[in-house]
């Protein structure tokens, strides 16, 4: 059982986001507590990824308030936004590894650019530590094109962790992977939380991933969270027909 503190690291209030006539988020409220894994569930195109992209400043909301570590995170000047970004890790759906760099260079890139005067020894130590953490120490000199889908995900997570972030955002971590690799990635998410003491938001539509990794679930339907709570609370006693349908159509039932 994880130790979840009462301190809120992310507070989202009344968040709205539209793309032309497509109203994706319609007044979203959500909190992330220190040390917890929060899973955001929903069908494709419901705005789950949009939500976490707003948190790191990749997208700007139309309306609403976002506080990260108690400070307003919207409309920050680029210097302050970058300071905040260093405390948040973002694992992309398609891993987003830099094609032209080896695994080592991929991991070193954010480190040497953000930590001034870091020694070669320290860079090597961190790269080794992270590759050990994701159980891929032998891939250090490989190119991303030589890795499998699951390995890419792991290296993507390792690159995200190299700056020791306090919050981890996972965008569809198990999308496109076989069931065995999915379980390995889910275990890795739990391991990262324990080893690096992070608070995480996991975006997924995979209920198995949600059940294995999440302390709390939040189901996003029609631009709003219709149910928030533990897996049992949200799904097993679900009364909302859309939440129920989401549960029923998944392979669990």
């Amino acid at each position: 059982m994880r130790k979840i503190e009462n301190e809120k690291v992310v507070e989202i209030r009344g968040l709205y986001k539209s793309f032309d006539d497509n109203h994706v988020l319609r007044g979203v409220d959500l909190d992330l507590y220190k040390g917890e894994n929060l899973v955001v569930l929903g069908k494709s195109g419901t705005g789950k990824s949009v939500l976490i992209k707003i948190l790191v400043g990749l997208l700007t909301p139309d309306k609403g308030e976002v506080k990260i570590f108690g400070k307003n995170a919207l409309g920050l000047p680029i210097k302050e936004l970058n300071q905040l970004r260093l405390r948040i890790g973002f694992s992309f759906q398609a891993s987003a590894l830099y094609d032209s760099m080896t695994v080592r260079e991929n991991l070193e890139f954010p480190l040497v650019r953000n930590v001034k005067n870091i020694s070669r020894k320290e860079v090597d130590r961190r790269v080794e530590e992270l590759l050990e953490a994701v159980a891929l120490p032998k891939t250090v000199n490989q190119m991303p094109s030589e890795l499998s889908g699951g390995q890419k995900k792991r290296i993507g997570i390792a690159r995200t962790l190299i700056l020791y972030p306090e919050i981890m955002l996972y965008d569809e971590p198990t999308a496109g992977l076989d069931p065995v690799t999915c379980i390995e990635i889910n275990n890795l998410i739990n391991q990262v939380q324990e080893q690096f003491n992070t608070s995480s938001i996991v975006i997924t539509h995979d209920l198995a991933c949600a059940k294995q990794t999440g302390d709390r679930m939040a189901v996003l339907i029609n631009g709003q969270f219709t149910a928030v709570g533990s897996f049992t609370d949200v799904f097993e006693g679900a009364e909302d027909p859309q939440v129920k349908a989401f549960y029923d159509y998944n392979f669990i039932k």
Binding site: F90, F92, L163
Partner: peptide, 17 residues
Amino acid sequence: GSMKVTEQIDAMEVSAI
């Protein structure tokens, strides 16, 4: 273009680069 569509540019941005 390929870096853009595979989110590598976004990955740089979120790493404060």
